[in-house]
């Protein structure tokens, strides 16, 4: 069961006050004097809510369509994998490498994929989750690497993450699970922040802005983890949340009505439409890049 929320936020903005008066007998009918805008957000408590976090694979699957070049330089060097000594740094960097693997396989970089698989295999042994990533997966990985099958590799990188996740969940190892998910999320965000310079409303910038939603779920997902170092790291994520929330403070669009509609596309698939897409300012982009880089550096250095 995930934690409960009961919050009531009230934000009021006085938009304008107009007042005019003459004699009282001209005031028989009421007239508009004031327009206020008020936002009420209520999150109801419910015991049975589960907050889920998408994998880096899902993020990079979407980005396959953006034309950003593969940037090998932003991957965590696989030679670092031997220097992680604690469960905390091993698990975080397991997450980092799985995000790197998702990125490399999404871009068809076989050479990097091979070495990343080795790093993940090595860390999985140290974390005692190698049973989750069975020999069959590694054989299939090897086969697809040799045959340069990018789509299958990308699929298998997802399987690797999924199996590790399920195994940890089954064995009640929520702390390691939380570390892997946080490490993977930070690495995924760091990669997309370094794919291209800021371009307003670009596909990449939209995906970065979308991470605000993912972060909200991630914070709840990890809220019950009992590990002091991870709790510290998660509290550092609040800096990222603050940057994402600047959008709310600066944008009047946020209070626009969000009309929703469902359509059906040519394949007969329902399309959920309506609402405003998330956006990101140049300043937010720069701030995020700096904060995420610092967090990520601390993780890959094994601090």
């Amino acid at each position: 069961m995930k934690s409960l929320f009961t919050n009531l936020f009230l934000i009021s903005f006085v938009f304008g006050v107009t007042s005019c008066s003459s004699s009282p007998d001209q005031n028989n009918s009421p007239e508009t004097v004031q327009e206020l805008t008020e936002e009420l957000v209520e999150e109801k408590s419910n015991d049975n809510i589960f907050y889920q976090v998408p994998t880096p694979n899902e993020l990079f699957a979407v980005l396959k369509n953006s034309n950003a070049d593969f940037n090998k330089e932003i991957l965590n060097d696989v030679s670092n994998s031997g220097k992680y000594l604690t469960k905390y740094s091993k698990a975080l960097n397991f997450g980092v490498y799985t995000a790197d693997l998702a990125y490399a396989t999404s871009q068809g970089s076989f050479e990097d994929a091979a070495s990343l698989f080795d790093a993940i295999k090595s860390l999985s042994k140290d974390l005692e989750i190698e049973n989750a990533i069975d020999q069959i997966i590694f054989k299939r990985l090897k086969f697809n690497l040799e045959n340069a099958n990018a789509d299958s590799l990308f699929y298998l990188s997802n399987e690797t993450y999924y199996n590790a996740f399920s195994y940890l969940e089954e064995n009640g190892r929520q702390d390691v699970l939380g570390m892997i998910v946080v490490g993977g999320w930070i690495e995924g965000l760091n990669i997309i922040l370094n794919l291209e310079p800021y371009i307003e409303d670009s596909e990449i910038c939209q995906r970065i802005a979308d991470q605000k939603l993912t972060l909200e779920n991630l914070l709840v997902f990890t809220s019950n983890v009992q590990n002091d170092k991870l709790v510290d790291l998660i509290s550092d994520l609040s800096k990222i949340e603050e940057v994402f929330n600047q959008e709310l403070e600066n944008s009047s669009d946020e209070l626009n009505d969000a009309e929703v509609s469902n359509l059906t596309n040519e394949d007969g698939v329902m399309v959920f439409g309506g609402g405003e897409s998330a956006s990101l300012s140049n300043s937010q982009f720069d701030q995020l890049k700096s904060i995420v880089m610092d967090l990520r550096t601390s993780i890959i250095e094994g601090n």
Partner: peptide, 16 residues
Amino acid sequence: KTVKVPKLQRKRVYQT
């Protein structure tokens, strides 16, 4: 003279 007069206040309320 000062008197109380009725005024209509319109408030835009955003709810989730």
